[in-house]
Amino acid sequence: MVPATSPPPAATAPGARAARRSNRRRATALVLSCALLLLAVLASLAVGSRAVPPGTVLDALRGIGDSQDALVVRELRVPRTLLGVLAGAALGLAGALMQALTRNPLADPGLLGVTSGAAAAMVTAVGVLGVTSRLTLVWASMLGAAVVSVVVYVLGSAGRGGATPVRLALAGTAVSAALTAYTTAQVLLDQQTFDRFRFWQVGSLAGRGLEASWQVLPFIAVGVALGLSQSSSLNALALGVDSGRALGARVGRTRVVTALAVTLLCGAATAAAGPIWFIGLAVPHAVRALTGPDQRWVLSLSLVLAPALLLLGDVIGRVVVRPGELEVGIVTALLGAPVLIALVRRRRLAQL
């Protein structure tokens, strides 16, 4: 019997070196993203219409001191920063999951109608049902996101070819237009609803309080766990449904669990901070330019980089019109569009 022989080292060395370089690049990107998130958190605590020295920030976090600056940090900026981390992580991961699920690099919760569904449910709860409890509004927002997700998928699946990325985008756009018209009508017909909805609609981290973060934290935590658990299956499905099944992926289960994760993440973030655009679209696209299409890295880096960018956008909004503030939803829209255009012009869209 002739013993099996391994490939000559010269044949495998280039591939092994390329894999090691790729892993080092991805690990470096993850470390830098974590460092950027830490800097964004510190900036969110220290920078604003009232600048607070770093030493005072650290003392306030340790519960030392009762100066005006320390109270500003503990009572206003800590809740705002925590909500920014939670909402940014949820939106970034939801965008990455939706792009992987639909195999469309330009998909995001807003494009496919999920954000509009959450907003319409919020308006209905406030204006029609008279709901005032934030926890109830969180449930209503997630219910609206879930219903719209199902409707868009059903519409996009109709006819031959099934749920293609183009059909899902068209269905999401149509549903979003209808829901936006409904939301606008509800707001214009009721002054009380308008007063409550107008500050939420632009997307903001200000004035929410710690209770907003604690109420959405369980939903976001479950959504993150479900989303990250599907990374390997999404990698398999990126090769096609038949190839994914051959590799052992359970296609139906993967789609259901991923859609549930997107609903939890987007619904909770939208209920707490309002609709914030471009974070879920631009961040995963930028991450893939750094790491490639491996969903294990795309999901992990999106989870870290998105809250960093959201907090930096919030800090920019505090200083550009000082002593007033520009809401973070406006800042992300103003900055996200040119950044995304630059990414598209520099590189071909990554295929998913």
Rank of each mutant, 00 (worst) to 15 (best):
G317C: 04
V328Q: 13
L343A: 12
Y153G: 03
G159W: 02
L305V: 10
L210V: 11
V72R: 08
R318L: 08
G110R: 02
V126R: 01
A40N: 04
A125V: 00
A120M: 09
T81K: 04
V126M: 15
A221T: 07
A40V: 01
L97C: 14
L311G: 10
A119Y: 00
V57M: 07
D242I: 03
L97Q: 09
A100E: 06
P3M: 09
R77Y: 07
A18N: 05
G280L: 07
A206C: 12
R198T: 12
R318T: 01
E327D: 14
M1S: 13
M142K: 10
L299F: 15
A272G: 08
T28E: 05
R17Y: 05
G55P: 03
A43T: 02
G336K: 13
L71R: 13
A120K: 00
V262G: 14
A221W: 10
A306P: 07
F219G: 15
A271G: 13
V256M: 07
G172P: 11
M142T: 15
G248C: 09
G65W: 03
R347C: 03
D59E: 10
S116W: 02
T164E: 05
G248H: 15
Q295G: 06
R245G: 06
P14N: 15
D294F: 04
V126Q: 00
L340A: 08
G207E: 11
G162I: 01
M1C: 06
V52T: 09
T263Y: 00
V85H: 01
A13N: 08
A121V: 00
A4E: 09
L39F: 14
R17W: 03
A16M: 14
Q295I: 00
L137K: 02
L312H: 06
D190P: 11
A261F: 11
L247Q: 05
L226E: 04
S22H: 15
V148C: 06
V147S: 14
L188W: 00
A269P: 04
L312Q: 02
V175W: 02
A29C: 12
A185R: 00
T332V: 11
I276S: 07
Q191E: 10
A272L: 12
R288C: 08
R345I: 10
W214I: 14
M1E: 09
V72F: 05
A249F: 02
T270S: 03
G156R: 01
S302E: 06
S176R: 12
A268G: 13
G88Y: 08
T291E: 12
A269G: 01
W200K: 03
V262W: 05
D190Y: 00
G172C: 04
A221Q: 13
L32F: 15
L76F: 15
A163L: 12
A19V: 08
L112A: 04
R80C: 11
A174C: 12
V331D: 03
A221S: 10
V166T: 15
S6K: 03
V52C: 10
L281G: 00
L239W: 05
D195W: 00
L264I: 02
A35R: 06
L42Q: 04
L91R: 14
L188V: 12
R345T: 04
T124I: 13
S6N: 12
L239S: 14
L290N: 05
V114D: 03
A27L: 15
A140E: 01
L129Q: 02
S229K: 10
A120P: 01
A121N: 10
D195Y: 02
G207D: 13
L311R: 12
R198C: 05
A238L: 12
L155C: 09
V283L: 08
V52E: 08
G63M: 13
L71I: 11
Y153S: 15
A259H: 06
